[in-house]
Simulated scan of single mutants.
Amino acid sequence: MTTIRRAAVLGSPISHSLSPVLHRAAYAELGLTHWTYDRFEVDEAGLAEFMAGLDPTWAGLSLTMPLKRAVIPLLDSISETASSVEAVNTVVLTEDGRRTGDNTDIPGMVAALRERGVEKVESAAVLGAGATASSALAALSKICAGPVTAYVRSPERAREMRGWGERLGVDVRIADWAEAGGALSAPLVVATTPAGTTDALAAAVPERPGTLFDVLYDPWPTHLAAAWSRSCGAVVSGLDLLAHQALLQIGQFTGIYSTSIETLRGAGMEALRLRSDRGRICE
């Protein structure tokens, strides 16, 4: 008798997550008919209780906000990558009860950039200073030879980014958000801000832009990404990141590392298309 194996994504809010679409597409490609992947609305207050209720059929968890740091005290160990940014987005659950945390966002960012031909840059700019920005700095520590300028809105955020830079070995320089238009001349620009935040920057895209990595995927394209593409600049999307980090998660959960990145990205694109179609119908 085949044992059911379970995995899921947790977070709050979680209804928008594309992770079930991507993971289920991978399981189908791999013939893992006994695997399931669901989503659960879980906040920080409910995380310990949820994890206490997991039985040996569970293989792994994907975590989104606000759980990436809240989960750390509940784990037996975390990887060096996760420790570097104090954020876990992947929990591997073994049948003997061990819980190991990892961060696939960071190598996922590096892989998504490499796929677009970005192996090394001399400098970079980061728009924003939230949780995703620290992962961006960790990824940039592997590919950026020179300084990273972070565009932030407050002295507190500036201190945080400087602190992450010191911890990760990145030469972080701070600029005020009011000067963010100047970021767009960098060879690599990483936008880590919520939807709509960078819309006003679209008019400032240079004639010959470098590479934009915009971590959003819904709605897509953002105004900034659309303007970047019109100027013939390379664009890496949040869906590229989601697919690459999910690829790594699937390997850790199942032990199989042969899923096609195009399978994951294609499933995500189709899901976003259907969302867009439903939105038009409802208007």
Rank of each mutant, 00 (worst) to 15 (best):
S141M: 08
G268M: 09
S154L: 10
I281W: 15
P219K: 04
G182R: 11
V118H: 06
E122I: 14
I4E: 13
T90K: 09
A178C: 12
T104E: 06
Y37I: 06
A271S: 07
R157M: 09
P155K: 09
K68M: 11
P187R: 00
A8I: 00
R69Y: 12
P56M: 09
E80A: 15
G53I: 08
G169K: 05
R230K: 14
A158Q: 07
G163N: 15
G97N: 00
R230N: 14
G101K: 04
A124R: 00
E115A: 14
L93E: 04
A124H: 01
L61V: 12
A204M: 06
V92L: 11
R162N: 14
M109T: 09
I4W: 02
E49R: 01
I72K: 06
G11M: 03
P73F: 01
V92C: 13
G196S: 07
A243S: 15
E270A: 11
G251C: 10
K120W: 15
E49A: 13
R99K: 13
A226C: 10
A48H: 04
E207P: 00
R173F: 01
R162K: 15
R153F: 14
R5W: 06
L10E: 03
V170W: 12
T211I: 12
L30Y: 10
N103K: 06
T64Q: 02
P107G: 11
S229G: 13
S83G: 06
L22A: 10
A180G: 15
A26R: 03
S77T: 09
M161G: 08
R265E: 13
R278K: 12
W35I: 02
L264M: 05
A226W: 04
D102A: 09
S260M: 02
V85E: 00
S135Q: 02
V126W: 01
S141N: 01
L201G: 12
A202S: 14
A246Q: 10
E95D: 15
L32F: 13
K120V: 13
P66Y: 06
A195V: 14
W228Q: 01
G117R: 12
G108W: 04
A111V: 09
W58M: 03
A111M: 11
A200Y: 14
R98T: 12
C282W: 10
V215C: 11
A234N: 11
